[in-house]
Amino acid sequence: MRVVLSNSSGVPLYQQVKDQIGTAILSGELAEGDALPSVRALARDLRISIITTTRAYAELASEGFISTVPGKGAFVLALDSALLREQLLRQVEEGLLTALDAARRAGLGRQELIDVMDGLMRTEFEHV
């Protein structure tokens, strides 16, 4: 797993860490039971504050992605299908909001946007 941070993205560093680890878990790059770097090691590797990595891990734990065991570290939890679906739905919604914003700026109407989506879905499903 590789975490890449950007100071110019406008997204807080803890959120970038959390999002990238969460994405690695959702994609299967990190599997159930995999150990994450310690808070201190991750902070050192990324050259960020221990407080930042602690917050990222705390949020991942509260969302059910990881479990922290005092003295042993943080480990990836099994994803239950409802959690996985909810996280993926959130990603779809974020992507669609971005698309809606671009469509609004381009002056696309509802039907034009639906036509674009239908075309993209047909193309995507033909290649599957």
Rank of each mutant, 00 (worst) to 15 (best):
M1Y: 07
R2F: 10
V3W: 03
S6M: 05
S6F: 10
S9C: 05
S9G: 05
V11K: 09
V11F: 07
Y14V: 06
Y14M: 04
Q16L: 01
Q16N: 03
Q16A: 02
K18I: 02
K18P: 04
D19W: 14
D19C: 03
D19G: 09
Q20C: 02
T23K: 13
I25D: 03
L26N: 08
L26Y: 05
L26H: 05
S27T: 14
G28Q: 06
E29Q: 13
A31W: 04
E32V: 10
E32L: 03
D34S: 08
L36A: 01
L36P: 01
V39I: 15
R40S: 13
R44G: 06
R47P: 08
I48H: 06
S49Y: 04
I50T: 14
I50W: 04
I50A: 11
I50V: 14
I51A: 15
T53W: 02
A58C: 05
E59V: 11
E59I: 10
A61E: 15
A61N: 09
S62L: 09
S62D: 15
S62N: 13
G64Y: 07
V69K: 07
P70Q: 14
G71V: 10
K72G: 00
F75Y: 15
V76S: 01
A78F: 06
A78W: 05
L83N: 07
L84N: 09
R85A: 14
E86V: 12
L89S: 10
R90L: 11
Q91F: 07
Q91N: 09
Q91L: 10
E93S: 07
E93K: 09
E93A: 12
E94N: 07
G95P: 04
L96D: 00
T98L: 10
A99P: 00
L100F: 14
L100T: 08
D101M: 10
D101S: 14
A102T: 08
A103F: 15
A103Y: 13
A103R: 04
R105G: 01
R105P: 00
A106I: 01
G109S: 15
G109Y: 09
R110W: 12
E112S: 13
L113K: 00
D115M: 06
D118P: 03
G119S: 13
G119Q: 12
M121K: 10
T123V: 11
T123P: 01
H127G: 09
V128L: 15
